[in-house]
Simulated scan of single mutants.
Amino acid sequence: MPVSRRDVLRCAAAVSASAALGAAAGKQAPAAAAASPTLIDFAMRQIPAEAIRAAGHAGVINYVSTSRPGSSFGAKPITLPYAKSLTAAGLVIVSNYQYGKPGGTAPSDFTRGYPGGVADAKAAWHLHTAAGGGRTAPIYFSVDDDIDRQTWNDLALPWFRGINSVIGVMRTGIYAGIRPCQWATADGVIGRSQTPGRVWAWQTRSWSNGQIFPHAVLYQRIIDTASNPGPVVGGIRVDVNDVLAQDCGQWNFHP
């Protein structure tokens, strides 16, 4: 079948984006590598690697957590066969843990304090390594809520310290709005990227008032909602994240 100019451009974008990330792992990148590769995150089901590449994305942020009671998300958790298919297609993988959710059938993970952090880190590390995740790669733990400083100090900070006690600070990252990203950095509970000046902060546009944390490695720019749907990749709507650092915690850079 004839290949359209649009398909050629999409393929070129995917190759450039993957090369830009792969350069951190010692692979040669083309001179005109994409300035801002993107990773997608999703939960509904596994999206074929070919569809992700065709859409021009460099890889995925995938869950190393199971579905909440009453739900059945096909992409939770990431599996070894799926991870292998992504890697074989030249796509990168970043790990994220989120089990509970505000208003969901399980409470937000961070509300369970230090003991909850210990339990969540053990569960996340088991699923991460079972899927072939890098032994030195970080896992981003989600604060999927607009919390204040008191809630951070009383609940989320002890939760992160529980996580640190299991997998160490250098393997701990945060997903949150700008303020928890700042607090986590100041309190020393998340690790540092090998990209100078960057930490394991995956910042969402939500609750960030249009600001981007200058030390973040990932920025969730497009958030799929009923009122503002995200782009469709492989038949499902996804969130889109800008890669802000060459080392954003991708498995291939952290064997």
Results as ranks from 00 to 15, higher is better:
243 V>L: 04
197 G>D: 00
243 V>R: 10
147 I>M: 06
151 T>C: 03
155 L>F: 14
219 Y>A: 05
173 G>L: 09
185 T>D: 09
180 P>G: 10
160 F>R: 04
161 R>W: 04
166 V>M: 11
180 P>S: 07
218 L>I: 05
174 I>Q: 04
170 M>E: 15
232 V>S: 14
182 Q>M: 13
248 C>H: 11
248 C>F: 01
184 A>L: 12
170 M>V: 12
227 S>W: 08
190 I>V: 15
202 W>N: 07
205 R>T: 11
240 V>G: 01
198 R>F: 09
177 G>T: 00
222 I>H: 07
237 R>D: 01
204 T>M: 05
166 V>N: 12
154 D>K: 15
169 V>M: 13
173 G>C: 12
163 I>F: 10
148 D>P: 09
197 G>K: 04
230 G>F: 07
177 G>E: 01
164 N>H: 10
159 W>K: 00
241 N>H: 03
187 D>F: 06
211 Q>K: 00
219 Y>R: 04
246 Q>A: 14
252 N>F: 05
233 V>C: 01
202 W>T: 07
198 R>D: 01
227 S>E: 14
179 R>W: 14
172 T>G: 07
162 G>M: 04
148 D>N: 15
146 D>K: 08
161 R>K: 12
144 D>F: 06
166 V>K: 11
145 D>L: 04
194 Q>K: 12
173 G>E: 11
229 P>R: 09
154 D>N: 14
160 F>S: 12
166 V>H: 09
188 G>K: 11
145 D>A: 14
224 D>A: 02
210 G>L: 03
223 I>Y: 03
229 P>G: 08
199 V>H: 00
210 G>F: 02
215 H>G: 00
192 R>Y: 10
207 W>F: 09
162 G>W: 00
173 G>K: 03
164 N>C: 09
187 D>C: 12
253 F>Y: 15
148 D>Q: 15
176 A>N: 07
147 I>P: 00
171 R>K: 14
247 D>N: 07
181 C>D: 10
253 F>L: 15
234 G>E: 07
196 P>I: 06
144 D>E: 15
172 T>K: 10
186 A>D: 13
152 W>G: 09
230 G>K: 12
165 S>G: 14
179 R>D: 15
222 I>M: 00
145 D>H: 11
237 R>P: 01
193 S>L: 13
154 D>T: 15
198 R>P: 04
249 G>L: 14
202 W>S: 07
172 T>C: 05
203 Q>M: 02
154 D>R: 14
197 G>R: 01
155 L>Q: 15
216 A>Q: 03
253 F>E: 13
245 A>M: 05
159 W>D: 01
157 L>E: 03
177 G>H: 06
197 G>Q: 09
174 I>D: 05
159 W>I: 03
204 T>Y: 03
224 D>Q: 09
238 V>A: 05
252 N>Q: 08
178 I>G: 02
246 Q>M: 13
234 G>Y: 09
156 A>N: 02
249 G>Y: 08
252 N>W: 04
153 N>Q: 15
170 M>F: 13
145 D>G: 05
213 F>N: 10
166 V>G: 08
179 R>Y: 15
174 I>C: 07
250 Q>D: 00
216 A>T: 01
160 F>T: 10
194 Q>G: 09
167 I>V: 12
